[in-house]
Design a protein around this nucleic acid. Sequence first.
DNA 1: AAGACGAAAGTGGTTGA
DNA 2: TCAACAACTTTCGTCTT
Length: 278
Amino acid sequence: MRISKEEVYCPNCGIVVEDFPMDSKPDYKEDNEKTGYGSPVKHSTTSIGSVIKYTDLGKLDPKTRNNMSKLIQWTNKLNTAMERNLNFAFGELEKYASIIHAPEQIKEEASRIYREAVQRNLVRGRSMESIAAACLYIACKEFESPRTLDEVADSAGINKKELGRTCRFVMRELDISLAPVNPSSYISKFANKLNLSQKTQTDAVKILEKALKMDLTSGKSPQGTAAAALYLCALMNKEKRTQREIADTASITEVTIRNRYKELLRELNLRDRLRKNK
DNA sequence: AAGACGAAAGTGGTTGA
DNA sequence: TCAACAACTTTCGTCTT
């Protein structure tokens, strides 16, 4: 018997969202037209119910009926245990998300990924915290609002290495592939933390665009490139920050900033401009 | 003295035989 | 499965401001 036949799936992600009467199909189109944002399903609420109609059991022969009731009991038990776990995990996710100031959209996406991870049995043998944090990290990246591994790891009280490992694992298992993060998406965050002017920010983004075109960024850590661009533009705009200050806010090392910075100077011929501004 | 620089050795992940 | 590899980190001595 295929239980899944009567379940309702989220049209976007294929996740089971709720049980539904046998003979009526949900019409997501209506919802989409009204809201313009796809289905209004909340992934962070647990609503997987039993899909077998009890009244149908009467039609079956006693042996099958017995088996079926056992199956129902078993799935119900499984469901409630799973719901409890999910609810707990969503609570944790909520905590981490508020620490890193992730908006509702990202929370929802992280919850969706987490639910999928649970259904694919990825949590077994790993801590719920690390999986939840990984989902959050991935969701942030998907929405091009990346957080550093350190930020997310800290919010969940786990270490960076473990989070990195778990992220790769989850992405591999759920077949999630993401475009490399554009270094520019870090600029405003870093610049704000460092109290750098708007001009420095826009200058840095311009430099990063050039760097991107010249393929100076592929394979390199986007934080490093962003940090170097900021360091450079801060120097040019006479609001110098030390390499250490910038390295700390970008959670990378001074050495990485130096290497990227040297590349930028060399490849974009910025040495003269820098000298003039001094 | 603080900051920048660069070399050297180590880490952990990726890739390709 | 293992070795080579690239990027990054840590550490540290030296140069510059």
